[in-house]
């Protein structure tokens, strides 16, 4: 069992919402730095060091977003240098860095999220909102690729049958139109059989149960509650410290409340690492005892 990735998808989704959400609503540089480190760390934990190229792209995106702000926005008191009669200010640079950190951190949170949330998990989340919609989407997920495959097969067959007689655009277009109309018939015909199969298995005879692969266990509830509590404390702490970028960068002095917020957010960000590591350690103990 994995400590974090295999928790109930609802808990995991709430965790990501909390972790990414706190950082998205605050421009506090400390919170943003923690969020960025945590997001990148979690992704590395899940993905390993494999996709180096994607990390370089992210670095590029970070630099670009950091640079754009001071180049386009010239507010701020502390002028660092002047380019084309436009002042580049320290404040705008800092703001750019913070914004870039927020963007890249959010992207990394989402990358980790989409790695963990496979189709079944997403469908489970959706089914929580509307079981009917989840069924429709599940059917569509089967149907759309099926349609695409059939389309390619029809095109190939028709090519050998001489449908696309000459290599000119008009003929090709006409051929495609015929294939499209045939595919519409095929889809309807297919739908009738699927509907038969649904009716034969008693669809629409009464109330349906919504069966899912996932359940709520104590660990899942713990993760859910921890995420919410830690996010609450972080927000409360962050609200106790004012951050001002323009005209002069100014951070109100560190209070106990703000410190509590930072610590809570730090704990929140480290939660997946702690849970996964706990399982890894448990595994080692288990294999030693054997």
């Amino acid at each position: 069992m994995q400590g974090f990735t295999e928790r109930n998808p609802i808990s995991v989704a709430v965790y990501f919402l909390a972790a990414a959400g706190v950082a998205m609503f605050s421009m506090d540089p400390v919170l943003l730095a923690v969020s960025l480190c945590g997001a990148v760390g979690l992704f590395l934990l899940l993905d390993g060091l494999g996709s180096l190229r994607s990390h370089l792209w992210m670095l590029g995106l970070f630099l670009l977003s950091a640079v754009i702000n001071p180049l386009t926005y010239h507010n701020g008191r502390t002028v660092l240098l002047v380019v084309n009669h436009n002042p580049i200010t320290l404040e705008a640079c800092l703001y750019g860095l913070a914004a870039a950190g927020m963007i890249v951190a959010t992207l990394y949170w989402f990358r980790s999220f989409s790695r963990i949330m496979t189709g079944d998990r997403l469908l489970y989340l959706l089914g929580g909102l509307s079981p009917g919609l989840a069924l429709v989407i599940s059917m569509a997920l089967r149907y759309v690729p099926l349609y695409g495959r059939q389309w390619r097969r029809v095109e190939e067959t028709q090519r050998t049958l001489g449908l696309y007689r000459e290599e000119n655009a008009v003929d090709t277009l006409r051929g495609k139109a015929r294939v499209f109309s045939a595919m519409t018939t095929w889809a309807l015909e297919n739908g009738v059989i699927t509907a038969d199969s649904m009716a034969a298995r008693g669809y629409g005879t009464g109330r349906r149960t919504h069966f899912t692969l996932f359940r709520f266990r104590a660990d899942d509830i713990l993760l859910l509650v921890l995420s919410l509590v830690l996010a609450g404390v972080s927000l409360w702490g962050a609200a106790g410290r004012t951050v001002q970028y323009y005209p002069v960068f100014c951070l109100s002095p560190l209070t106990g409340r703000a410190l509590a917020g930072y610590l809570a957010y730090g704990a929140l960000v480290l939660l997946p690492l702690i849970l996964q590591t706990k399982e890894a350690i448990a595994w080692h103990f288990w294999s030693w005892k054997k």
Partner: peptide
């Protein structure tokens, strides 16, 4: 054509859900 859903497990429980 008589398969309704996208996953094996889901197909198995489709009738039972009904």
């Amino acid at each position: 054509e008589q398969i309704v859903t996208d996953k094996v497990w889901h197909e198995l429980c489709f009738g039972l859900e009904n």
